[in-house]
């Protein structure tokens, strides 16, 4: 046994491990475990704040090595321009390979969020993701989803087993005990891994603040050209946005709580242009972060349905 005097000092230091320290250590453990056990991992990188945190954790986990897997961006061609800028910059800063996949069928058919409704998500994102994972031969894919986002996520394991058709069967999940993750799969099967499972939106923001992680400027309030559609404030990010005859975008001070395809992502009116101010607003707000996303409102339990079909 260690000498009592030394144990005392250890105990004192131990109480210094905060919830962010413990979350960080847990995520790093998960990232390393996948790299140790999977043949060919990949990290889904959506350029949002959760992706930014996940990428940062990967750099920490494998330092001084470069994270030994590529980043994968499943592009829809409809993301905010500022997201494309940060995507390329962040991948370069990490020294990691960036794979950009655009579903060729969606591209050929000109699928867009204005004319095609939920087919936009199905084809660009769900199908595009499946194509990219298959093409890369990836047997493990990291995603930045958190359990506090949505009820179907709350029940998903950290290592989420997917059949050869990439579907999710909530009843066939492997029990996860302690920190023992079973990453064994057969040929053709894969796992989706969620290192941020136990983080909340507030944890993410606090960690971004603590670590000084760069995020897309759209998370901070600034005057931007906007229009209103179905109760959502949308940003007119480029000239593909169909305006009604005579309609002029209105400049509003807005920011985004979550980032996706710009025609599908609602902004909030805000003056919060610093991290503490954003966190302050988030804590005082009365709506959840996915509220600005059109995808969840399609139907009851729509996220669970999408996951069964192969959505992340």
């Amino acid at each position: 046994m260690v000498a009592p005097a030394r144990a005392g000092t250890i105990s004192a230091r131990m109480s210094g491990l905060t919830h962010l320290d413990r979350l960080e250590a847990e995520s790093i453990y998960i990232l390393r475990e996948v790299v140790a056990e999977a043949q060919s991992p990949v990290m889904l990188y959506s350029v949002g704040k959760d992706s930014a945190v996940m990428l940062h954790l990967a750099r920490k986990a494998f330092y001084p090595a470069t994270p030994p897997f590529p980043l994968l961006h499943v592009d829809t061609t409809w993301k905010f321009r500022a997201m494309y800028d940060l995507r390329d910059k962040a991948a370069a800063a990490a020294g990691m390979e960036l794979i950009v996949h655009r579903n060729p069928e969606a591209l050929a058919a000109g699928i867009n969020p204005f004319d095609h409704g939920s087919r936009h998500t199905d084809l660009w994102k769900t199908e595009g993701l499946k194509q990219a994972l298959k093409a890369g031969g990836f047997d493990a894919a990291f995603g930045g989803a958190r359990r506090d986002e949505e009820k179907a996520r709350a029940k998903e394991r950290i290592f989420s087993f997917r059949s050869a058709s990439q579907g999710w069967d909530p009843k066939a999940q492997r029990p996860e005990l302690w920190n023992l993750y079973n990453a064994r799969i057969r040929r053709g099967e894969s796992i989706r891994v969620f290192p941020l499972s136990n983080w909340t939106e507030l944890d993410i923001w606090q960690y971004i603040l603590r670590e000084g992680i760069e995020i897309v400027p759209l998370y901070f309030a600034a005057p931007r050209p906007t229009v209103e559609r179905d109760g959502l404030i949308l940003m007119v990010d480029d000239d593909r946005f169909p305006l009604a005859p005579g309609e002029m975008p209105v400049e509003r001070s807005i920011r985004f709580r979550t980032l996706g395809c710009y025609p599908l992502t609602g902004a909030v009116e805000s003056a919060a242009d610093t991290l503490p101010a954003v966190i302050q607003e988030m804590l005082l707000t009365t709506t959840s972060e996915r509220q600005g996303r059109a995808i969840d409102h399609d139907q009851t339990a729509s996220m669970e349905k999408k996951k069964r079909e192969g959505y992340f």
Binding site: P170, A301, E304
Partner: peptide
């Protein structure tokens, strides 16, 4: 009670994780 199947059955059938502070 998150999953559609169990809403119908009225019982919780899996481990669900919740967060508060």
């Amino acid at each position: 009670d998150g999953l559609a199947a169990e809403r119908e059955q009225g019982i919780t059938i899996d481990v669900a994780y919740r967060f508060f502070a």
